[in-house]
């Protein structure tokens, strides 16, 4: 039997996942058209984000099957999703002779780290060693740092060429950073109201809506 707020949360998680998977279709275009592997981090990042939202929905709906380690897996995968996006931004600004190699090494290391993390989580009695709350706080702090890096990068791009079309993405990432901050507060202060977590989820929906708006406007707006 689900509580009312759990039902709402499942709906928001599913909607977020669908939005992420639609965004993947747009985010893969820079890689498809330019053939530059350093842009593959964007669809990977949004794909992983979408997958974590699906896992989140399942872990609420079927806690007996998707409980326990699934919580850790979605925490880790979400942080890696943000890392994929952040490294894409980092390497997009440095088209040097060796940057392609550095990107390939970074991508390989990220995947190795991700697999090792999943294997560690799968160890027996893992949740006796690390409490979920400690892990949650730690990963949220890392997420905020990564998103702030992306925010600064995109805002710098806007400052270089100020335009009404380039301001939306840094604003979108800022919403995501505040959303992560809200979930961090929810993790730190145990008896905080559920409004905090729903505030965070709504901010996340705003972030995804901004990105969808920008993508649809770019690809489907009629041009002269």
């Amino acid at each position: 039997m689900l509580y009312y707020y759990e039902e709402i949360r499942i709906v928001i998680e599913v909607v977020s996942a669908v939005m992420c998977f639609i965004l993947v279709r747009f985010m893969i275009k820079p890689y498809e058209v330019t053939g530059e592997s350093r842009y593959i981090g964007l669809p990977l990042g949004f794909g992983f984000l979408g997958a974590t939202y699906v896992l989140s929905a399942f872990s609420i709906y079927l806690p007996d099957i998707f409980g326990g380690n699934t919580f850790y897996i979605q925490l880790i995968a979400r942080t890696f999703a943000f890392l994929f996006i952040a490294f894409t931004y980092h390497f997009s600004k440095k088209p040097t002779k060796n940057s392609r190699w550095f990107w390939k090494i970074t991508l390989t290391l990220l995947f190795i780290l991700l697999i090792i993390s999943f294997l560690i989580v799968d160890l027996p009695n893992f949740d006796n060693v690390y409490s979920y709350r400690t892990a949650d706080i730690g990963f949220r702090v890392i997420n905020i740092i990564i998103i702030l890096y992306i925010c600064i990068h995109t805002f710098r791009s806007y400052i270089e060429k100020p335009s009404s079309t380039t301001i939306w993405i840094p604003i979108g990432y800022a919403f995501l950073a505040v959303s992560q901050y809200s979930t961090l507060l929810f993790a730190i202060v145990v008896d905080l109201s559920h409004y905090t977590i729903f505030g965070a989820l709504i901010l996340r929906l705003i972030f995804l809506s901004i990105f969808l708006f920008v993508a649809i406007r770019t690809f489907y707006q009629k041009r002269r």
Partner: peptide
């Protein structure tokens, strides 16, 4: 047409492309 749209999208996303 697709190429210009993608470059515009990358510019809006804050990505740089040589």
């Amino acid at each position: 047409s697709e190429y210009e749209k993608v470059l515009d999208f990358m510019r809006r996303m804050g990505l740089e492309y040589q």
